[in-house]
């Protein structure tokens, strides 16, 4: 093990990890927004929208992110939609994550008994008020485990970003292996940096899950 090599190239990995985290969380944030909107639309069974969302979910969940990225990055410019690598990474992750987040939130919403909505409405709350103050808080606590699992899944999926020429951790590792043949060192740093990114989320997830378990109503 060549520690000098590791020390020398540590800043390179840090940059790459920052890029991964930045694009990863930007994509996840949009995915959460998409997921919330879609889940609420499905919950209220909005006529046409419901069908469109189901089609979107099926396409997004049944195709690999790598192919989605290739399509966004190389195919969309051909019909006049230009993309940059960063925008492509965020958009791809949001497209994939949106459907996973929708499923997480939807299962939470479905777990809330219909009587909760009926009672809220009979107390004179508007539908939107009932959703915000009665349904959502209960649904969210049910969604947390699936939500955290999705965040970890999506952060892991960012590893394919180098395919659209983003200089992420995978790109850096492959580059160093190709240039200097320091395979063991490069792979070790790769693993360590992914652990730094993913372990805290995983631990936070299990803590949250334990704390929220009793937050549901009537259980």
């Amino acid at each position: 093990m060549n520690w000098e090599f590791i020390w020398e190239y540590l800043p390179l990995y840090r940059e790459a990890a920052l890029l991964t985290v930045k694009i990863g969380y930007a994509g996840i944030a949009i995915a959460v927004a998409v997921g919330l909107v879609c889940a609420v639309a499905l919950y209220f069974k909005v006529p046409v929208l419901k069908r469109i969302i189901s089609v979107y979910i099926e396409i997004s969940r049944n195709t690999p992110l790598l192919i989605q990225l290739f399509f966004i990055y190389y195919a969309l410019p051909k019909i006049g939609i230009p993309t940059s690598p960063e925008a492509c990474g965020v958009a791809g992750l949001a497209f994939l994550g949106g459907s996973y987040m929708t499923e997480a939130f939807r299962s939470g919403l479905e777990a809330v008994e219909p009587i909760q909505m009926e009672s809220a409405l009979s107390l004179g709350l508007e539908k939107s008020q009932a959703l915000r103050h009665v349904i959502m808080p209960q649904a969210m606590s049910v969604s947390v485990p699936a939500f955290v699992a999705n965040v970890i899944f999506l952060l892991k999926e960012t590893s394919v970003f180098s395919a659209v020429s983003l200089m992420d951790l995978m790109f850096t590792a492959k580059d160093l292996i190709g240039l200097y043949y320091k395979t063991t060192e490069s792979l070790l740093m790769l693993v360590v940096f992914y652990l730094i990114i993913l372990l805290p989320v995983s631990i936070l997830g299990s803590v949250l899950e334990r704390r929220l378990r009793h937050a549901g109503f009537g259980t």
Binding site: I152, K156, E157, T158, S159, V160, M170, A173, K174, I177, Y181, T183, T184, S186, L187, L190, V191, Y194, L195, L198, L199, S202
Partner: peptide, 19 residues
């Protein structure tokens, strides 16, 4: 489960050669 599958592929593909 915590490692991206691509990282595992790199470990096996490049790692076995060097190790």
């Amino acid at each position: 489960r915590i490692m991206p599958q691509l990282v595992l592929l790199f470990i096996v593909f490049f790692g076995t050669t060097s190790a």
